[in-house]
């Protein structure tokens, strides 16, 4: 009875996650070992064939590289920008509350809408960005069609969408820092920057790790935004692992090959997360 209780509490969630996430991911591993096609009468076993094919697939190498660039750059910029905003807007007065809401608003807009709106905004012919830069005599840049600029532009929009989320979580973390820490440091005559460095940031570390963890996972799985804005182009310069597996799986019907890509992605995500959570849980225990 008592032994069963925890499982009663967790039952619904674990059952749903087990049936609709964990078991399907195991099945996709099975697919990845076959030349698996939806609906085909035979699914020939290929062993690790799909994985060796991936290693030699230049599209895969490019997608993996892009995914890592997007993740590292987005996470770094997001945490920096979000921290700056959080520090600037900690106080509970009406002004900072309203401003915080404004920054948070992009978080609730769907990625497809964000992608579509920014695609329009950046369009050299109708977009505000091109219009303004032309009015200033700078000429219009075709952001999403330049092989050099497309990836940074995607990263920018990803930051635009998620900076408010990082900010809110960090504001929460800042508020949880006991006031005594600051009082003690003030008694020692610490200056503002010193306070930041020796009191705020160390106390904020668990929250920073949490938000880094969430943002990293989200960036590694980036799909909708890229799919809507560039479709992975130009010339695969913004192709991510998920846009690639989507193309292989749903446009070319190579389910087994797409499943192999997804397992590589899954392993990358798990490795990165385990690495981050190790640090995270270490602090958790305190």
């Amino acid at each position: 009875m008592t032994k069963a209780r925890p499982w009663l509490f967790m039952g619904p969630s674990l059952l749903i996650l087990g049936v609709f996430v964990l078991w399907p991911i195991v099945q996709s591993l099975w697919y990845s070992l076959h030349d698996w096609t939806v609906g085909a009468a035979e699914q020939p076993w290929v062993g690790l064939g799909n994985y060796t094919k991936l290693v030699h697939d230049p599209q895969f190498q490019r997608a993996l590289g892009n995914t890592l660039i997007i993740t590292v750059a987005s996470t770094a910029v997001l945490v920096a920008v979000g921290l700056g905003l959080a520090l600037a807007l900690t106080s509970e007065n009406i002004v900072s509350r309203v401003i915080r809401s404004a920054f948070f608003f992009p978080t609730v807009i769907s990625l497809t809408t964000v992608g579509m709106v920014w695609k329009f905004l950046l369009d050299p012919d109708i977009g505000l960005v091109g219009g303004v830069s032309r009015a200033l005599g700078l000429g219009a840049v075709n952001w999403l069609q330049s092989t050099a600029l497309a990836l940074p532009t995607v990263i920018f929009v990803n930051v635009w969408k998620n900076a408010g989320f990082v900010m809110i979580v960090l504001v929460a973390g800042l508020k949880a820092i006991p006031g005594e820490y600051y009082e003690a440091a003030a008694l020692d005559g610490a200056r503002r920057l010193q306070l930041l460095r020796y009191v705020t940031l160390p106390a904020l570390r668990p929250t920073m790790l949490f938000v880094t963890f969430i943002v990293t996972i989200q960036s590694l799985q980036l799909f909708d935004l890229v799919y809507v804005m560039t479709g992975g182009g130009p010339l695969f310069h913004t192709d991510t692992l998920v846009t690639k597996l989507y193309r292989d799986g749903f446009a070319n019907y190579e389910t087994g090959y797409a499943a192999a890509t997804s397992w590589v992605l899954f392993i990358v995500v798990v490795l990165v997360s385990v690495f981050q959570l190790r640090i995270f849980r270490y602090n958790d225990a305190d």
């Binding site: 996709s28 939806v38 799909f223 998920v242 997804s262 899954f266 995500v269 798990v270 997360s273």
Partner: peptide, 19 residues
């Protein structure tokens, strides 16, 4: 159990769509 929950956070939706 906690780790299993966390692992599901790491699965992109497109991966499990067909199964």
């Amino acid at each position: 159990a906690f780790w299993l929950v966390l692992v599901t956070l790491m699965v992109p939706f497109q991966v499990t769509l067909i199964p």
